[in-house]
Amino acid sequence: MTATLDAPSAAPVIPSFDVTLKIRRFLPDDGAGAPEPYWDEFTVRAHGTDRVLDALHKVKWEEDGSLTFRRSCAHGVCGSDAMRINGRNRLACKTLLKDLDPSKPIIIEPIKGLPVIKDLVVDMEPFFASYREIMPFLITTGNEPTKERLQSAEQRERFDDTTKCILCAACTSSCPVFWTDGQYFGPAAIVNAHRFIFDSRDEGGAQRLEILNDKEGVWRCRTTFNCTEACPRGIEVTKAIQEVKRAMITRAF
């Protein structure tokens, strides 16, 4: 007997609810005096499966087209939409509305410590400048091997955690030292240095340690664990920073 399709069984009903977004808005200077940031509130109808990004889309597409935020893939891979949601740095595309207590307004702010360009869009250049400075590319000496550079599974495992970084800046902009001093390299740059320092194929470790030994380098880390808590990829950021510190100390003594 062949399987028959039952009468259109009622699909499980996804609960829908009203949710209020309280968004920090900022308009860039148009030459008519210094612009002031302000709070704006929008109430939208959302489903139990919706994420904060869906609610932002609904606001932008149906209520206020001038609301500005970054997003590219919308699936937690590109790292474009890190923002401060209810006081914690998260990716809007990975945060479900139902996990945030939708009975209260959901507070959405741009990430801290970087200059705001408009609404939720910040200038990421200082963040990427730090990233470039730790030379995030393979450094080798000698002749190119004719085949791939071999590495054992254990050697790969050593830095596996820090390869997961998507450069969303959630960790760096959650760091209290970075908030008051934009010169600090920040957790993300150190994580990406860690990825190469502990790679058995890379030979630039000494140079990278030298760069991070700067006054504004790893020694400004106060191990507050904000970065580990903020990372949407679950990287143990503070642990990686401590491992870089240990590598410097064993090198110096």
């Binding site: 920090r24 410590g113 200059p115 380098g217 110096a252």
Partner: peptide, 27 residues
């Protein structure tokens, strides 16, 4: 309501302006 400027307290300077203070003092 008006609230404080959301900009960084001190906008980060461009990187080349960083004083290089390498050396092991902090270590």
């Amino acid at each position: 309501t008006t609230i404080a400027d959301p900009k960084a307290p001190r906008p980060p300077k461009p990187r080349p302006a960083r004083l290089t203070t390498r050396g092991n003092t902090e270590l």
